[in-house]
Amino acid sequence: RTAFSSEQLARLKREFNENRYLTERRRQQLSSELGLNEAQIKIWFQNKRA
């Protein structure tokens, strides 16, 4: 289980509010910017949509 920092969570929530689905390219960008792997971001979005 991933423990996200408050900064990472704030960024993910802001991104989710703008778009509930990420393109592969956007997921790669977020992964690089947040220091998370793409799978972690993908799962976070899946869980948030559920």
Rank of each mutant, 00 (worst) to 15 (best):
residue 28 Q to N: 07
residue 30 L to K: 00
residue 32 S to W: 11
residue 2 T to A: 09
residue 5 S to I: 03
residue 49 R to H: 07
residue 7 E to M: 07
residue 3 A to I: 12
residue 41 I to W: 03
residue 34 L to N: 00
residue 1 R to L: 14
residue 8 Q to K: 03
residue 26 R to T: 06
residue 42 K to R: 12
residue 5 S to D: 06
residue 6 S to Q: 13
residue 35 G to D: 06
residue 31 S to M: 05
residue 2 T to S: 09
residue 19 N to L: 04
residue 25 R to C: 08
residue 20 R to D: 06
residue 18 E to C: 12
residue 10 A to P: 00
residue 1 R to I: 13
residue 49 R to Q: 09
residue 14 R to F: 09
residue 14 R to D: 09
residue 44 W to M: 02
residue 1 R to D: 15
residue 48 K to W: 09
residue 47 N to K: 11
residue 1 R to T: 14
residue 10 A to N: 08
residue 1 R to K: 14
residue 34 L to M: 06
residue 32 S to Y: 13
residue 19 N to I: 03
residue 31 S to I: 05
residue 44 W to Y: 08
residue 38 E to R: 04
residue 34 L to W: 02
residue 49 R to E: 07
residue 8 Q to S: 03
residue 15 E to T: 03
residue 39 A to L: 14
residue 38 E to T: 06
residue 16 F to N: 01
residue 38 E to F: 04
residue 2 T to I: 12
residue 9 L to G: 01
residue 17 N to D: 12
residue 19 N to Q: 05
residue 35 G to Q: 07
residue 4 F to H: 02
residue 37 N to T: 15
residue 45 F to P: 00
residue 35 G to I: 03
residue 50 A to P: 05
residue 33 E to D: 07
residue 8 Q to D: 05
residue 24 E to L: 10
residue 25 R to D: 12
residue 12 L to H: 00
residue 13 K to T: 15
residue 11 R to S: 06
residue 48 K to E: 15
residue 34 L to C: 02
residue 45 F to E: 02
residue 6 S to C: 15
residue 11 R to C: 05
residue 2 T to P: 14
residue 7 E to H: 08
residue 31 S to D: 00
residue 20 R to K: 10
residue 9 L to M: 07
residue 34 L to I: 08
residue 30 L to P: 00
residue 40 Q to H: 08
residue 49 R to M: 12
residue 31 S to P: 01
residue 8 Q to P: 01
residue 31 S to E: 05
residue 24 E to D: 13
residue 47 N to F: 12
residue 40 Q to K: 06
residue 38 E to L: 05
residue 50 A to R: 14
residue 5 S to L: 04
residue 42 K to N: 13
residue 46 Q to C: 11
residue 45 F to Q: 01
residue 19 N to H: 09
residue 9 L to N: 05
residue 36 L to N: 00
residue 1 R to N: 14
residue 26 R to I: 06
residue 41 I to C: 03
residue 18 E to L: 10
residue 23 T to G: 07
residue 2 T to R: 10
residue 12 L to D: 01
residue 17 N to C: 12
residue 21 Y to F: 12
residue 41 I to M: 03
residue 2 T to G: 13
residue 16 F to T: 01
residue 10 A to C: 10
residue 8 Q to Y: 01
residue 16 F to L: 03
residue 36 L to W: 02
residue 27 R to C: 15
residue 47 N to W: 15
residue 25 R to L: 12
residue 15 E to P: 00
residue 29 Q to R: 09
residue 50 A to D: 09
residue 1 R to Q: 14
residue 3 A to L: 11
residue 23 T to W: 04
residue 12 L to Y: 01
residue 13 K to S: 13
residue 49 R to F: 09
residue 44 W to T: 00
residue 21 Y to C: 09
residue 4 F to K: 02
residue 15 E to W: 03
residue 41 I to Y: 01
residue 33 E to H: 03
residue 32 S to F: 13
residue 14 R to G: 05
residue 21 Y to V: 09
residue 42 K to A: 15
residue 16 F to Q: 02
residue 28 Q to D: 04
